[in-house]
Amino acid sequence: MNLELSSEAVEFGLQAARALRAAGGDDLVQRAETDPTTRHTTIAAVLERLGAWDLSPRRDPIELEAAAALCRSAGYWAIPYPVAERLSRPADLDADALVVVAGPEPAAAIDGLDLRVVAVDPEGRRGTVTARRAGKRTGLDAEVHGETFTRPDTRMDGEFAVRLGGGFGGEFAVRLGGGVGGESVGRAGGGTVEGTVAPTDGRTARETVFVTPIAVRPLDTRGADDLALALVLPCWTLLGMLDRAMELAGDHVLVREQFGRRLADFQSVQFQLTDAEVERKGVEMLARYALWSIQTGQPDAVADALAARLAVLEAAEIVFRVAHQVHGAVGFCDETTLSWLSRHSLPLRRLPLGITGTEDLLTRRIGARGLAGPFSDPRGA
């Protein structure tokens, strides 16, 4: 087993990172929050020019590695676009993207994207996906731009609520138009909703999560081969986020001073960063092993993918915790890149399952026989 990606894949990932930097870099995720259409006009356009959707990760081992490198570069810039999901699309279906779903209320980070999406569950059952309105518990997913939101094509009946991310909560007054009229905090009799959202606490409303509940219509049970790829490529996206988090933490401790000394000079800070880096490097090795498992058609490819996901989720908890600790309170402010990176890692870390759910799924899949690994069987490496 070769632990390194091919030179072609590495170069493709570097070119992708440079292209995304030239297109806006860190500004891409910030612009997408205020104007989600930039995900099509800017991000998707850059990926199209790179030839991202011409990759065939299911057919060619080198292109699979290139797809992983691309996902890592997308994660580095926290690109709010389903790169891994599009690269995982089934070869035998007319679809643009593939998402893994689990649980009675499946959800995916596909809100506002005009894509033909197929879902696969942990049992390999596939289904078509349509976005649906949330129930009373979560309310209607609304796009909030600055202090206004507009959904001119959305028809609503009954109760609704504006759900805000980024730490906002509480009651919100909503002025309704388009035949509804008046002001309300929770009920519309039908019609088109256009209005102003005014947080009662005086803060500016801003939507920060591109996640929507979805309904899955059963399609077939031939998705076993899809599952491993759809689990592994998002791991590479999250790995790119961990790369950036460690880089940001390292840069911060080199310039920030406390008690007349750089943070980097404190031994406790050095220990924290070392622990986080060990986690990141270990995940990189497991992600490469899971990729090799798919490339060589290993029978435990899905189990290896689940193990890689579990490892990257656990590493993300440590890396982001350490990065936030060394940044201090400023790490939670949107003036810092870490705040955006950390927040936009959450859909990847929570969907389709978090740490506990992934661990349970892996345990039930492998039973008592355990996992293979890079050093388990020299004859198969």
Rank of each mutant, 00 (worst) to 15 (best):
L176M: 11
E147C: 08
T221F: 13
F332V: 06
W53F: 12
L291D: 05
F375C: 11
Q295P: 06
V118F: 03
V10F: 08
L351A: 07
G223I: 11
F271N: 11
G190M: 06
D60H: 07
R89W: 00
R137I: 11
A66K: 11
A69S: 15
D96L: 04
T337C: 02
A74M: 07
G139W: 09
D304A: 15
R288W: 02
E143W: 11
L306Q: 07
K281Q: 13
V326P: 00
T337W: 06
E11H: 07
G240C: 08
A290L: 01
V326Q: 01
T363G: 12
E277A: 10
R49K: 13
T42A: 04
S184W: 05
G177K: 08
T34A: 14
R262L: 15
P299N: 04
D377H: 13
V232C: 03
V302I: 08
V100I: 06
A66D: 00
A32C: 08
S88L: 05
A323Q: 03
R350S: 12
N2M: 13
V162C: 07
A311E: 09
R343W: 10
D27A: 15
G158I: 02
V100H: 00
G250W: 03
P218I: 03
A95F: 04
A131Y: 07
Y289K: 00
G195R: 02
H344M: 07
Q30Y: 09
P122M: 10
D60F: 01
M285W: 08
G75L: 05
V120N: 01
H324Q: 14
L64M: 14
F375T: 14
T138P: 10
H145C: 09
R364V: 05
I318L: 14
P218R: 06
R261P: 07
L310C: 05
Q295W: 03
E207S: 15
H252I: 04
T336N: 08
R155V: 11
R349N: 04
A45H: 10
G51W: 10
L248H: 09
R72C: 08
Q298R: 15
P36F: 02
Q270T: 10
R288Y: 00
A9I: 02
G354K: 03
S56A: 13
F12K: 01
I79Q: 00
I294M: 14
A45G: 08
P61D: 02
R125M: 05
P80W: 00
Q15S: 12
G51K: 11
G146D: 14
G370L: 12
L140P: 03
R116K: 15
L263E: 04
Q298P: 02
C333P: 01
R31D: 12
V312C: 04
T336K: 09
M241S: 13
L310R: 04
